[in-house]
Amino acid sequence: MRVQAEPFDVGAELAAFAAGRQDVGAEVSFSGVVRDDGGLAAMEIEHYPGMTEKALAKIEAEAVARWDLKASLVIHRYGRLEPGEKIMMVATAAGHRAEAFEAAQFLMDYLKSRAPFWKKETGADGASWVAAKDADEDALERW
C-alpha cells in the first residue's frame, strides 16, 4: 500500500507485480483516472496522513485474507492532478480469476468510501468538493 503525491507508472507496476510467483493464475488491475466531463481544470485530493495509510492497509489485509491473494497492490495519490492523470490503482493476484476480480472490486468499493480521501474539482466556475454518492455506500452491502 502506498500513498504518494508523485505519479506512478501503471505498466512498470504491473510488470513487477507478483513477479516470480508460480502459484498465480490470475491478475486483475484497475486504475482510476481524472475524468473531464467538460471544463475540469484540476482535481485536488486531500487525505488524512496516518489514518489513510492505516485504512488502506486494513482494507488490503482483509482482501488478501478473504480471497487468499498471492499478491496485492494499492497505490493512491494525493495533491493536485490534471485530467488524464492516474489517481490510483489496485492489482490483485490469485490462483484463479474469480478471486482476483472479486478482490479487486472489494478493494475499489472500500477505497471509495472507507479510505480518508476527499476530492475537490476546480473548473471554469470555481472549485467544489465532490459529494459522496449513495451508490458508493450501497456498494459495500454486497460484501
Binding site: G50, S113, P116, W118
Partner: peptide, 29 residues
C-alpha cells in the same frame, strides 16, 4: 468522525482519546 484514526459514531466516548477528526463522507478511488 474518527477517534485516534478509526471511524466512530457521534455517541462514542472521548475518554482516553488523543485525536478527533471531523470530515465529510470520503471520496477516494
Amino acid at each position: 468522525v474518527a477517534l485516534d484514526q478509526e471511524l466512530a459514531g457521534f455517541d462514542a466516548p472521548l475518554a482516553g482519546v488523543r485525536e478527533v477528526a471531523f470530515f465529510p463522507p470520503m471520496t477516494g478511488g
